[in-house]
Deep mutational scan, measured.
Amino acid sequence: EQLARLKREFNENRYLTERRRQQLSSELGLNEAQIKIWFQNERA
């Protein structure tokens, strides 16, 4: 579920704002660094 949600977010926007990253962190139970790194890896 977390992965599917991250992929949906990535398809909508390849870059997250700090606020959006905080929201996802709270909703998915991941820390902000994990989300940031995931997005960086997807863009690579």
Rank of each mutant, 00 (worst) to 15 (best):
residue 41 N to M: 12
residue 37 I to E: 14
residue 2 Q to W: 11
residue 36 K to G: 12
residue 44 A to I: 12
residue 36 K to N: 14
residue 21 R to A: 15
residue 31 N to H: 10
residue 14 R to N: 12
residue 2 Q to H: 11
residue 34 Q to A: 13
residue 30 L to E: 01
residue 36 K to Y: 11
residue 25 S to H: 02
residue 6 L to F: 00
residue 41 N to R: 10
residue 26 S to W: 12
residue 31 N to C: 12
residue 37 I to S: 13
residue 13 N to R: 06
residue 1 E to F: 05
residue 25 S to Y: 08
residue 3 L to T: 09
residue 17 T to N: 12
residue 39 F to R: 00
residue 3 L to I: 13
residue 29 G to M: 07
residue 30 L to N: 00
residue 32 E to D: 07
residue 40 Q to T: 07
residue 30 L to K: 00
residue 17 T to I: 02
residue 38 W to E: 03
residue 13 N to M: 03
residue 1 E to K: 06
residue 15 Y to I: 12
residue 17 T to A: 05
residue 39 F to I: 01
residue 5 R to G: 04
residue 3 L to H: 08
residue 36 K to I: 15
residue 4 A to P: 04
residue 9 E to K: 03
residue 39 F to K: 00
residue 12 E to I: 09
residue 30 L to S: 00
residue 34 Q to S: 10
residue 2 Q to E: 06
residue 42 E to H: 08
residue 4 A to K: 07
residue 23 Q to F: 07
residue 4 A to E: 13
residue 26 S to Q: 14
residue 34 Q to I: 15
residue 28 L to P: 01
residue 41 N to T: 10
residue 30 L to M: 14
residue 23 Q to E: 15
residue 29 G to H: 05
residue 44 A to P: 03
residue 7 K to I: 12
residue 43 R to G: 08
residue 19 R to Y: 10
residue 37 I to P: 00
residue 4 A to G: 06
residue 40 Q to I: 10
residue 22 Q to C: 11
residue 26 S to N: 13
residue 39 F to N: 01
residue 42 E to V: 07
residue 32 E to T: 07
residue 19 R to G: 14
residue 27 E to S: 04
residue 27 E to N: 02
residue 22 Q to M: 12
residue 28 L to G: 00
residue 15 Y to A: 07
residue 41 N to W: 08
residue 16 L to H: 03
residue 26 S to K: 15
residue 39 F to V: 00
residue 4 A to V: 07
residue 6 L to G: 02
residue 6 L to C: 05
residue 37 I to D: 14
residue 19 R to E: 15
residue 7 K to V: 11
residue 17 T to P: 07
residue 25 S to L: 07
residue 41 N to S: 07
residue 16 L to T: 02
residue 1 E to A: 07
residue 37 I to L: 10
residue 42 E to T: 05
residue 17 T to D: 14
residue 20 R to E: 09
residue 24 L to D: 03
residue 35 I to H: 00
residue 12 E to S: 04
residue 42 E to F: 10
residue 6 L to K: 02
residue 3 L to W: 04
residue 5 R to M: 07
residue 34 Q to T: 13
residue 43 R to P: 04
residue 11 N to S: 13
residue 29 G to L: 04
residue 34 Q to M: 14
residue 22 Q to K: 14
residue 3 L to Y: 05
residue 3 L to P: 00
residue 5 R to Q: 09
residue 37 I to W: 13
residue 11 N to W: 09
residue 7 K to W: 06
residue 35 I to R: 00
residue 37 I to C: 14
residue 35 I to P: 00
residue 30 L to I: 12
residue 10 F to A: 02
residue 11 N to H: 12
residue 25 S to V: 09
residue 34 Q to G: 01
residue 12 E to Y: 05
residue 28 L to E: 01
residue 41 N to L: 11
residue 9 E to R: 03
residue 26 S to G: 08
residue 33 A to I: 11
residue 42 E to W: 13
residue 32 E to R: 03
residue 22 Q to L: 11
residue 31 N to W: 07
residue 6 L to A: 03
residue 7 K to Q: 11
residue 10 F to L: 02
residue 10 F to W: 06
residue 35 I to Q: 00
residue 7 K to P: 02
residue 27 E to Q: 07
residue 20 R to A: 11
residue 16 L to G: 03
residue 29 G to F: 03
residue 24 L to W: 01
residue 37 I to F: 08
residue 18 E to S: 10
residue 10 F to P: 01
residue 41 N to E: 09
residue 2 Q to P: 02
residue 21 R to H: 05
residue 17 T to H: 05
residue 37 I to Q: 14
residue 10 F to G: 01
residue 29 G to T: 02
residue 30 L to G: 00
residue 26 S to M: 15
residue 36 K to H: 14
residue 33 A to G: 08
residue 36 K to P: 01
residue 14 R to Y: 05
residue 20 R to V: 10
residue 17 T to L: 02
residue 31 N to D: 15
residue 23 Q to Y: 10
residue 35 I to K: 02
residue 2 Q to S: 09
residue 28 L to H: 01
residue 6 L to H: 00
residue 39 F to H: 01
residue 7 K to Y: 07
residue 7 K to H: 12
residue 26 S to E: 15
residue 11 N to T: 09
residue 21 R to S: 15
residue 13 N to D: 10
residue 23 Q to V: 11
residue 15 Y to K: 10
residue 39 F to T: 00
residue 25 S to P: 01
residue 24 L to F: 00
residue 39 F to C: 04
residue 44 A to D: 12
residue 33 A to M: 14
residue 27 E to I: 09
residue 42 E to A: 12
residue 24 L to S: 03
residue 7 K to M: 11
residue 24 L to M: 03
residue 36 K to A: 15
residue 18 E to F: 02
residue 6 L to P: 00
residue 37 I to A: 14
residue 28 L to N: 01
residue 13 N to E: 04
residue 30 L to A: 01
residue 40 Q to W: 06
residue 15 Y to F: 13
residue 18 E to P: 14
residue 26 S to C: 13
residue 25 S to N: 01
residue 4 A to L: 09
residue 28 L to F: 02
residue 16 L to M: 05
residue 26 S to P: 01
residue 19 R to V: 15
